[in-house]
Amino acid sequence: MTSQPQSQPEPQQSPYAPRSEHPDSPATATAAPAAPTRSALALVSFIAGLTVVLLGVLVTLLYPLIFISQPMSTGVVVVVQTGSGILTALVALVAVVTGTIALLKRGGASKTLAAAGTALGGAAIVQLLAGLVQSGLFQLVV
C-alpha cells in the first residue's frame, strides 16, 4: 500500500489581513501595529499650553521681586500684569486653535497632546476672563 501525497488546500487570506505593497511578496499576519504618529499641530498646542502655565508661574514669582525692589510702585505691577495678560492671551489662543484643529483632523495621529494643549489654553482663557470680570466688579464697587 503506497500512500499518495495529498495536496493540502492553501489557506485563504483574510480580507482584513495587511496587504503588502509588492504583489509577489506574501503578507504576514504578524506585522507589528503602526505606532501612533504625532501631529505637528498637536505638538504646537501642547508646547503653547505648557508655555502659558510656565508664564503664569514666572509672573507669580516675579511679583515679590518687584515689591522688594520698588516698594509701593504700582506702575511696574500694572506693566507686568498687562504684558503678561496680553502674552498669555495670545499663547493660550494659539494652544486652543491649534489643538482644536489637531483634534478635528482625521487620521491616526495621537490626539493626547492636542487635548492637553487645548485644555491648558482653555483654562488660561477662562482665568483671563475671570480676571476681566473681577476688574469690572472692582470698578462698580469702588
Rank of each mutant, 00 (worst) to 15 (best):
V77L: 09
H22V: 03
A119S: 12
V142M: 07
S45E: 04
L128A: 06
A29G: 06
G107M: 10
A89C: 15
L140W: 01
A35R: 13
S84A: 15
G56Q: 08
G56L: 04
G49L: 00
G99F: 09
I47L: 14
P26I: 01
Q127P: 00
S14D: 15
Q127F: 13
T118N: 10
V77H: 04
I86L: 15
R38Q: 14
T30H: 02
Q70E: 07
A29Y: 11
Q8R: 03
K105D: 14
G117E: 11
V79S: 12
A35C: 01
T98Q: 12
G117N: 10
Y16L: 08
T74H: 13
Y16R: 02
A35W: 09
T118E: 05
G117L: 06
S3V: 04
S3D: 03
Q127L: 14
Q70T: 05
T2C: 02
R19C: 00
V133F: 07
Q12P: 02
A35K: 13
Q6P: 01
V94A: 15
L41M: 10
P5S: 11
A114K: 12
S110Q: 07
V133E: 00
L62Q: 06
L87P: 04
L103Q: 12
V78W: 07
L113H: 10
T100E: 08
V59M: 01
L43S: 14
Q139A: 13
L55R: 02
G117F: 04
A48V: 02
P71E: 07
S39N: 09
P11I: 00
A92P: 10
V77Q: 14
S3P: 00
P11Q: 04
P18D: 04
V77A: 15
T118S: 11
G56R: 02
A34D: 06
A35P: 06
V77I: 11
P26K: 05
A29V: 03
A42E: 08
T60E: 08
A29C: 01
H22A: 09
V78R: 15
S73G: 02
P15R: 13
A31V: 06
S45A: 15
D24W: 13
L140Q: 11
S110N: 14
L140T: 07
L41E: 10
A35F: 06
A102P: 09
P15M: 03
P5I: 01
G121C: 13
A130M: 09
T2L: 12
S7E: 01
A40Y: 09
E21T: 00
Y63G: 02
L58P: 02
V94N: 13
A35N: 11
L93I: 14
G83L: 11
S14V: 00
A35E: 13
L65M: 06
F46N: 08
G136S: 03
S73L: 04
I47K: 05
Q139F: 03
L104D: 08
A114H: 09
